[in-house]
Amino acid sequence: MKKACKANLPALIFLFALLLLWQAGATEMDAAYILPTPVQILQRLWELREPLFLVHLPATMTVTGIGLAISLVLGLALAVAMDASGLVRRMLYPLVVVSQTIPTTAIAPLFVLWFGYGIWSKVLVTVLITFFPITITVYDGLRAAKVEMIELLQTYGASQWEIFKKIKIPCALPYFFSAVKMAVPMSVIGAAIGEWLGAKSGLGYFSRRMMTQLDGAGVFAPIVLLAAAAMLAVGIVALLERYFVRWRGES
């Protein structure tokens, strides 16, 4: 615990300095509807704690969780398929890349038109944003397995499944956790974008509603909550990585 606190101390000091600059600049501007101070945002977060924590945060986390789960299954399946077959790789890899050229803000309203204001329009936005880093990063991890080790197992008569289990999975595991740590905040962003463009609940929806009321602190309060939720989720993934990838050195 002490080692972790000491490692994060520079980041905490830098963050505190940024907050002080923000506080001073927003106080000097004196236009809370445009740029509220951090203190005003925290006050508004406390005032709105019931709708934020009991209604809108669970709605956003539900979208995030479902979208991330689908992205994990889809991304892992595509990565394994592309690694197993050169034909599949040539068929799918360009399509996976092209999918990321679609502007999210352009396709999200279409999802709302197709699937309504329910949860699935937001889930699809989240999946569209998050499956790509999982697919590409895990695929790179599978391809990073050393050819010499694979050939050695083949000389001993190992099957493709045994090679996959004993060589490729351990090699791709650090890549997998790196992909998940990238996908988690992106899934939160995707859920918020979907809610911003069309929803009945969620932190993105609440932030947009506060904007129509010219409530600057109310706009920032759900954003702060989103950031805190994403950081907590990434921290949990980092703990799981430390447990499952014990051979990886710590920086």
Rank of each mutant, 00 (worst) to 15 (best):
K146E: 13
G65I: 04
W196G: 04
G235Q: 14
A77P: 02
W22C: 11
V184H: 01
S85P: 06
G216L: 12
L76P: 03
L124V: 00
L18I: 05
L9T: 11
I129M: 15
S71L: 04
T64A: 14
E50W: 14
G216W: 04
R90D: 07
L152C: 05
M182H: 13
T135Q: 03
I34K: 07
I34V: 08
A7F: 15
M91Q: 01
I107Y: 09
L124W: 03
M182D: 02
S178T: 05
A32W: 09
L12C: 11
I13D: 09
K3Y: 12
L113H: 09
A228I: 08
I136G: 00
I169A: 01
L45E: 00
E148N: 12
A217D: 13
V147I: 15
V123I: 10
V96M: 02
L95C: 05
A31R: 14
M231T: 03
G198K: 06
Q40L: 14
V147A: 15
K165P: 03
A158E: 14
L87H: 10
A192E: 00
L173Y: 02
R90T: 14
K168L: 09
L57W: 06
L128E: 08
L15N: 12
F111W: 02
M1E: 00
F115T: 01
A228L: 15
P94L: 12
I167M: 08
I223Q: 04
L142Q: 05
F53D: 06
S71K: 04
V98C: 13
F132V: 08
L76G: 07
A26E: 13
F131D: 06
M182G: 13
M61A: 12
M29V: 14
A69Q: 13
L68A: 08
A217Y: 02
E50P: 01
L203K: 01
A183Q: 08
A144C: 00
K165F: 02
L239K: 14
I13A: 08
S99E: 11
L68N: 03
L128T: 01
L72C: 07
I41M: 05
E47T: 00
Y33F: 09
P10R: 09
A179K: 01
S178C: 13
A183N: 02
K166S: 10
P38T: 08
L226C: 13
A228Y: 02
W120T: 15
T135N: 07
Y243F: 04
M1N: 05
F176M: 08
F115Q: 06
G157S: 06
T104A: 11
V123R: 04
L110Y: 08
A144L: 01
L21D: 00
E241T: 09
A191K: 05
A229T: 12
L45P: 01
L87D: 08
